[in-house]
């Protein structure tokens, strides 16, 4: 029932009521995950605010993809809790997944189907009626500049265009949280900049909360929130300038280097 949910975005709050703070778009609280004996995530906690761009910075193998698999419920949470706009991903996955759009690191478009067919299939998986799905597809394809290619096979697209298509697809059901896992991997400089710019626009224009996993420092802007993930642990989190200052560094690159070298001896000590 929807009636039991108070309108979370109503922050005007009258004097008699407690101030309703904005529900985090994503909250990850004390999440640990193991593959057998190997611990992939260790007590990971952070939040993504609505209408914010949060960069999840970590090297390959830091646990980013495991974290994404947990948030999208491909794996069940072993310990800790993950909420999407307050909906527990384990207990009410339907509500949580409805608010979530995701672009995985490996390409997940059907190469033999057309752009439009890929979008319509995704819409059907979200129970969006055909007529509505068509309208939304045309609109999104126009926005990513691929309207004239709607009937072409995805196979004919460039890497950057495929990524744009995947982002459009992730937005089809109008999610309020968007996850992107290394979305610019394998793209050239221009395509990378296009994608990053496009996603930032979604944050400012549509108020979507974005979690952007990357290992590329130059994709992080000073106004972003940052979560530094290293060997399954969160080493730092907060607005970018704060993380840099706390690490006693001059930029993200140096902060990351300092944080990870500090963390590594500690890890080998308890190993």
């Amino acid at each position: 029932m929807t009636t039991q949910n108070a309108p979370a975005l109503d922050t005007t709050g009258s004097a008699t009521q407690p101030v309703l703070q904005q529900v985090p778009a994503l909250s990850v609280a004390g999440v640990s995950h193991s593959y057998g004996a190997r611990k992939a995530l260790n007590d990971v906690s952070f939040v993504v605010k609505p209408a914010s761009f949060t960069a999840l910075l970590g090297l390959n193998g830091a646990g980013k993809s495991t974290l994404f698999s947990l948030i999208t419920r491909l794996f069940a949470v072993q310990s800790g809790q993950i909420n999407i706009f307050g909906h527990d991903i384990g207990r009410t996955p339907g509500e949580a997944l409805r608010l979530l759009g995701v672009v995985f690191q490996p390409r997940t478009v059907d190469l033999d189907l057309s752009l439009r067919q890929n979008l319509l299939y995704h819409a059907a998986l979200h129970g969006i009626s055909r007529r509505e799905a068509r309208a939304r597809s045309e609109e999104l394809l126009a926005r990513i500049g691929l309207a004239d290619r709607a009937g072409n096979k995805v196979r004919d697209l460039s890497g950057g265009q495929m990524r744009r298509l995947e982002i459009a697809r992730a937005l089809l059901h109008r999610p309020r949280l968007l996850l992107l896992d290394e979305a610019t991997v394998g793209l050239d400089v221009k395509a990378r900049a296009d994608i990053v710019g496009h996603v930032r626009q979604l944050v400012t224009e549509q108020g979507i909360g974005v979690l952007w996993a990357t290992h590329l420092f130059d994709e992080i802007a000073p106004t972003d929130d940052l979560v530094v993930l290293h060997q399954g642990r969160v080493l730092a989190r907060g607005p970018v300038p704060q993380v840099i200052a706390e690490a006693g560094a001059s930029d993200v690159n140096a902060a990351f280097a300092r944080l990870t070298t500090q963390a590594s001896p500690a890890r080998s000590a308890d190993a």
Binding site: T2, V19, F85, G86, E95, G127
Partner: peptide, 22 residues
């Protein structure tokens, strides 16, 4: 400031139409 984290309003469950569309 009392922080109340109320889930964002969203429909729960799915209609028969959504199941069929899927």
């Amino acid at each position: 400031v009392t922080t109340v984290h109320t889930p964002a309003p969203t429909r729960s469950g799915f209609s028969a139409g959504e199941y069929i569309t899927c």
